[in-house]
Structures are given as structure tokens and as C-alpha cells.
Design a protein around this nucleic acid. Structure first.
Length: 170
DNA sequence: TGAGTGATCGTA
DNA sequence: ACGATCACTCAC
């Protein structure tokens, strides 16, 4: 008998780079047309604070990055290259930070993930704690994982380009 | 390896 | 108001 636990607000109030590996193996539950689909998170990346030269918050608070400045447990969604929505889970509080969902199950690539889950800009700032459209569950699955450098951030400085804040289920 | 695609942000 | 940039993907 499986007894999944819905993740609550406390879970999200950690630093993004500490929460990121804990998100691996958690289930993203998505209600689409009154049917619930569950996807296991398999790859993530952490972005932390305005000092992280790879993080969107490096320019401070703007219209786009507002969500990251709110309390953890909500989504930060933005469009990139005019085509792809990126889904991030906002974490912590008072410091802008988030975890990018790069893969679920065997679907890898953040653009493919949002396409699969039917996520668009309307999900920006949506709560994972209150929403009946999207939330996270823990079924006590604790995968082994590896850590690597983050992808697609050549513009960042050496330290932040090389920090091991990408986490992948092994 | 390069085209597609459009919101966003800095500069003004 | 403009131009450069971009947490990407797919087809060549």
C-alpha cells in the first residue's frame, strides 16, 4: 500500500542547491482535464541568489524574476528563445533562488518537460501547496544521483560556471 | 552547427 | 524605442 505524502511549505524553505538533490525522485502531480498524471523528477539545476552570475536574479528584481523573490513553494515560469517555457520551483525565502526542472522520468530537456506537462506562463507564481492543478508528492523513493556543472551558462563567471549545482538520477 | 522565435532588460 | 541576449530543441 503506497501512501504518498504531499510536500508542504516547510519542504520548500531550503536553499535551492540543498533542495535540488532532494527533489530528485519526487513526483510532480499534474491535473490535466481532471486526470492526474505523475512524473518523477530525474534532473534538476539550482540557481541561488543575486550573487550567482548564472541566475536571472543577478540583475535584481524585475518583472520577469519577481516570482523568485516570493516565498518557496511556488513556480517561476519564463519563456526562452521565443519557444520554450522553463519550469522552476522557487525555494527559500528572502533570497531569490529556484530549481530548474530539466528532466522527468525519461524525458530530458527543460523545454520538453514543460511541453509534456502542458505548462505555460499562466503557471508563473502558482503555488505547489494550494493548487489543484500541480503539486509534488513524496513516495519515499530515494535515488542515487550525480552532480555536474550547470548547462548553458557560458556568460557566468568561472566559479558559478563550474559549481556542481546540476543533479541527475544515476 | 545553425535556424527558429519573441519576451525581456539595459541603455537612452 | 531599439537591439542584444537568451536555464533550448531539432534538423542538417
Amino acid at each position: 500500500m503506497i501512501n504518498n505524502i504531499k510536500l508542504d511549505k516547510d519542504f520548500y524553505l531550503k536553499k535551492s542547491y540543498e533542495l535540488a538533490p532532494l527533489l530528485l525522485g519526487k513526483l510532480i502531480c499534474r491535473n490535466i482535464d481532471n486526470k492526474v498524471f505523475k512524473y518523477r523528477i530525474s534532473e534538476v539545476e539550482a540557481y541561488y541568489s543575486s550573487l550567482d552570475t548564472a541566475c536571472h536574479a543577478r540583475f535584481g528584481k524585475t518583472k520577469r524574476t519577481e516570482a523568485m523573490y516570493l516565498d518557496g513553494g511556488i513556480l517561476y515560469i519564463y519563456l526562452i528563445y521565443g519557444m520554450y517555457y522553463m519550469m522552476n520551483i522557487v525555494t527559500g525565502d528572502s533570497i531569490p533562488q529556484a530549481v530548474l526542472i530539466r528532466g522527468v522520468d525519461n524525458t530530458f530537456g527543460p523545454g520538453k518537460v514543460t511541453k509534456l506537462l502542458k505548462i505555460d506562463k499562466s503557471f508563473n507564481k502558482m503555488s505547489l501547496i494550494n493548487s489543484n492543478l500541480i503539486w509534488l508528492e513524496d513516495d519515499n523513493y530515494h535515488p542515487n544521483y550525480i552532480s555536474t556543472k550547470r548547462i548553458g551558462i557560458d556568460y557566468a563567471d568561472e566559479y558559478y560556471k563550474n559549481v556542481l549545482w546540476r543533479f541527475i538520477i544515476k
